[in-house]
Every structure is written in C-alpha cells, then in structure tokens.
Design a protein around this nucleic acid. Structure first.
Lengths: 336, 336
DNA sequence: ATGTTCTGTCGAACCGATTCGGCGAACCGA
DNA sequence: TCGGTTCGCCGAATCGGTTCGACAGAACAT
C-alpha cells in the first residue's frame, strides 16, 4: 500500500498524488477528489521512513528523561506531559530516551542516528557531557534547566535562586528571623544538580542580605525522609519559625511529622517554597508558594521548533519567576 | 556523512561497509579494520530512516499513554518507566502517543504510518475502539489491561478482581463484617475502566460470598477527594471497620482525615488494598496490600517482541496476582 | 593443465516517498 | 494563424541504506 498503488488506482502518476497531498503544486479539483477517494478507500498513509529519508527530517522530537530507575518527581512528570502534548499539537511525535550517563546507547542512537529533528534534555547537571555531545553533533536542542555555562545554549528554567530568595524575604517581612531550607537529596546537591544548588545559593544570599539565621538541610525525595527531616530540624534547631522548601516528595512526611508533633501551620511554623501547584494545594493548610509553571514543557517545544527552523539565530532562554501564591501557610513569626 | 562517504574513504564499495557493519557476510579482517577506523574518525552512524525504509522495520515501539491533561497515577508512571527501560535494553526506542479518544491524529500516525514495529496500549477501557483499530491495521500490539472480550489479543494485567477479593477475605478472616471499597473516580467507573470495574466486581462477589456488608464509594484521584471520601464514609457508615482501596492518589487525604478524626489504624480501622508498593510504604502505618508489580511494562515489551517475531502464534496473556504483603495496617475487628 | 570450490568484494536494484524540469493542451492577444 | 502563457500532469532523479547475484582470484583436487 504505497503511493504507487494509489497513483495506479487513481490513474495518475505518483508525483501527482504527492502534490495532491502536500498542496505544493496545483492539482485540478477533479483529480484531487479522485485521488482522495482512493486514499480514503484504502486507508492509505504515507510511509514515515520514506518521507523522512527524502525530506531529511523526521517530524519527531527526542526527549531525554532521567533513567527509569529513578522515580520521576511530579514536576518532571508534568514536563514530560506538557512536552508530549505540545508536540502533538504541532503534529510531532516524541521519542523517549532514558539516559542519565554519558555514553548511553539510546542517547547516541537518537542524537547521531538522525532519528529526531531536535532534542529536549531534562534534568541536566551544572556540568553535563550530554550537552557537549549535542553541541558536537549539531542537533538542535533545548534544555530544561541550565548548565553552569549557559551561554550559547537554548534553555527554559525556573529561577530557583530568585524565587527562594523571595520566599525568604516574604518570611523576613513577616518578622521571621530563623529560617530553614529543606532542599533535595544530598546526592543531587553533590552531583551539581542545578535547582538544588541555585535554591541553596538564593537562600544563603537572601539570609545574609537580611541578617537572618539560616539552616539548610538536604532531604531525600520521599515521605519517610521528609518526616525524619522535620523531626531532626525540631530537635536540632527548635527555634526555627519558618521553612522554605523545593522538595515536593517530602511534603507528605512533613505533614505527618507536623501533625504528630502538634505543630500548627502557620501558627507555630510558617511554610513556603517553590512547588508544583498540585503539591501546594494538597497540603493542609494549602501552602503559600511560588507555583512552578506546568507549561514549561510547552515553551521548551516552542523554543526547539524555533531553533530547528532557524538554527543560526542567537539562542533564546526563558527564565520563569512565577509570583508567590498566597494560600495561608505563612503568618507573622510567633512571639518567643 | 553517509555510507558512501565511508566507503570512499576506506576505498571499498558501499555494500562492503554495510556487510562489515552488520556481519551478514564475511569481510576480511583487514578491510573491516580499515572501515571501522574511518567510521570512528567521522563518528558515523547509519541513517535510521534509510534503514527503516529498506528493512521494513523501525526498531521503535509505540507507547500509547493517556492524554497529557490527565495526571498519570504513580502506577501508570511505573509502567511507562519499565516499558522504556525494557525497550532500551533491547536497543529499541519508544515513541509516545498521548491519545485517549478514537481518532487521534497522533495515534493514527503511529499505527498506520508504519512509524513503529509494535504498539503497547495503556489504560484501555472495557470497550476500546483503539484495539479494534489496531486489529484492522494489523500492527502487532499488547495492551496493559484487557477489554471485555480479551480473546485473540495479547495483554498483561493485574487481576484486580481476585486481589480485591483476597483483601476482603483477609479482612473477613480477621472478623470484619462491614467493609468499604474506595474505588477510583465515578467517571472512570462509568466509562468502563477495567481495573475499577473489576475491583468492584471482586469486592461485591467476595462480600456476598462471606455474607458481609459492603459499601462501595467512588473517589476522585486526589488527596482532597480522599479526605472528603473518608469523612463521608464515617458520617454515613460509622460502623465500617475496614477499608479496601485501589485509589493511590487518595491515600494522603485519607491519612489526613484519619489523623484529624483521631482514628487509629489498625486499632479502629483496618486498611488494605491493591497499591504500588511505594504508596503502601509511605502510609503510616505502612499498608498491608497486594503490591502492583512494577515490572509489568517489561513483560509487556517481552510479549510484544514475541508477537512481532511470530505474529501468527496464538496470543499470550499474563495475569498478575501478587501476594498480599503484610505491613501492619490490618488487625482483628474492634469490639463494639 | 583443467575443473571446482571458496573468499572477499563489487555493482545494481530496491524500499517509498518528494521534487524539479519538462511537455502537451488550452487559452490568450495580436 | 501563430507565439507566448498558464495549467495540470508526468518522468526521472534522489535520499541512504540493505541485499542479491555476479565475479575475480586464490586454493585445491583431479
């Protein structure tokens, strides 16, 4: 069932069928209808591989996700979903590559086998060989998150440093003097994971700027760790009056520890941070937080399509600083 | 940078390069090394489209996921992850198609544009046009979950009916007489979503078999709904002593409602169900539950590869009935 | 010396689309 | 009636691989 078959049955040449389908040259209305009738009857659809070979593009985007073994966070999942959805809107397919390391076979296939027209790279580290590799091969790409040296690459990111700083300022304005940051896991921070590092950077800077006392903790990405982390915090730093966090997965555990210790939010303790809206709203009370925009994947796709269309244009970046949504988990610091 | 270029530089013909790479004919060791040297130098990798065109297969699997707008549950996410990982192990790529409805463009592209060698279909309904469509086109496919009429198709599934029944029996053995099922959302049940329907079926049958009183509730897939659901349950059926559930997303809300109402688990109320292990373990106390196997995606890929290799072999099915892991959230029914 | 087998390589056809140059027919004005 | 456009279609080349048949030369047997 190829284009030749359609041409034969419609009594025209293969090129005419192609032109009728693409509209790149005029085909008489009558011929067009005859061709369309045959196509409908046989349920014909052009062979993607043949088209890709001739056109030199695959109408496919590559999405490099963290290896499957790592559980994706809700935020990451949101990215994947919005990338796939945005791609579908532009009639593009998405090829998944689970690859963390440097010389992953699946990664190599995608970037150098010309299987995709462009690549979106998630969860990059401050130093990331995959970025170097993509630059070598010349495949257009956009990263979600940015490297230590982000010039010349095209990326979208959340401005964790600024947002966490804003959270600190918000709390300082409410009179809090001793604030804790509950960060992501120690391994992530150690491996140079951008959001974790920038959150810490923004935190320490804002703390210093306002002359406050800051405590920063790492916490694995699960409820059990969150629970332990909050307990540890109350044991070692009982005078802390507010918490800032970017660790979504720890929240259920934090909630549990709070309830067990009968700590009222925001009466005894204010909580805020940078979180996917869904997590902020599922907390009790709902958390005042900067909502990570769910549509970042969409913007990444837009940027990538731009880049594919004009590879020589200067790379664009999008840094999101969503406003803090007030939901009632922060209040003036309690009196001693 | 095509095979011709390599051939030219190595001073051989294109076919020799091809044979050197595939090993389908003997090439002298010396020639082979010369070719490999050129390939390494130029970092050559064969064009995937050209190969797919000639070979008639794409080395790509399609994975049809629920539309991006719906948040995927943890369980679904686990499937995606394990599918992608298993495919990568076989050097296959995975093409994502977010499509719920019948005539989705992305779905059509994938199944009839010969973009993939086979398809894995997630979250199918008891009656699902996509299955019909796949059967029409003749693309090999495997479903995760099965339709009302599962003969002749190839699928893997969790035996919700049996597992939920086992939970009920487990509770009945502990002396519980009034048991509630917290199911997935009412819309899912109404739309003929298999797991929800089969859970309900297994529940009612086991309840009847043991002469118990059963209450079944639908609950949207989020914490807020879970909280409301548990409250409603306590208001309308205060004599319920045990809960069975498959609704993972509702668990955090259920936990909250329990703590607020000072209901002890398992002292006042036993809880069990069919859940991804991670959810069961994150509850306090950890939930006794049948752990949904995370490697179902892997099995789906294996089945699909078999089917691609031998499309005429009778379709195989895998129905998982993992044992109930005892974690301490169930105990003998409290005395009146 | 001649026939046979085996090795290693080459040339050409092919997969199924797109696209460019060209060509006949219809149509135009002069 | 004729030259020049315009319209609608066709034929052939092309993309970059794979694969089959052929073939030269060496090795071996007769």
């Amino acid at each position: 069932m190829n284009i030749g078959e359609i041409a034969r049955r419609a009594g025209v040449s293969r090129s005419t069928v192609s032109y009728a389908l693409s509209g790149k040259r005029v085909v008489s209305e009558e011929t067009r209808r005859r061709i369309q009738a045959v196509i409908d009857e046989l349920d014909y659809r052009p062979n993607a591989a043949a088209r890709a070979l001739k056109e030199g593009r695959t109408r496919t985007l590559g999405l490099v996700i963290p290896p499957a073994s790592l559980r994706l966070t809700d935020m990451q999942l949101g990215f994947v979903a919005s990338v796939v959805e945005a791609a579908a809107r532009s009639d593009l397919d998405v090829l998944l590559s689970p690859s963390g390391g440097d010389h992953d076979r699946s990664f190599e296939r995608i970037v150098s086998g010309r299987r995709v027209d462009g690549v979106i790279l998630m969860e990059i580290r401050l130093e990331d060989e995959r970025v170097t590799r993509l630059q070598q091969t010349g495949v257009p790409f956009v990263t979600i998150g940015h490297t230590a040296n982000p010039d010349g690459t095209c990326w979208v990111d959340v401005d964790y440093a600024t947002l966490i700083a804003r959270c600190v300022h918000h709390l300082a304005d409410l009179g809090h003097r001793r604030i804790a940051l509950i960060n992501r896991s120690a391994e992530l921070v150690a491996s140079g994971y951008g959001p974790a590092q920038r959150a810490l950077g923004g935190f320490t800077e804002a703390i210093a700027q306002r002359g406050l006392t800051g405590v920063d903790l790492c916490c694995a990405d699960d409820a059990t760790a969150g629970e332990a982390c909050l307990r540890q915090l109350r044991d070692e730093h009982p005078d802390i009056t507010a918490i800032v966090t970017i660790n979504e997965a720890a929240l259920p555990g934090i909630q549990r520890a709070l309830e067990q210790a009968r700590i009222a939010v925001p009466g005894d303790l204010s909580i805020t941070g940078v979180l996917a809206r869904h997590w902020a709203e599922d907390f009790r009370p709902p958390l005042t937080a900067a909502d990570v925009p769910t549509e970042m994947g969409t913007h990444a796709v837009d940027l990538l399509l731009e880049r594919i269309a004009t590879p020589d244009a200067p790379p664009r970046n999008l840094l999101f600083t969503p406003p803090i949504s007030l939901r009632g988990s922060t209040s003036p610091a309690p009196r001693r």
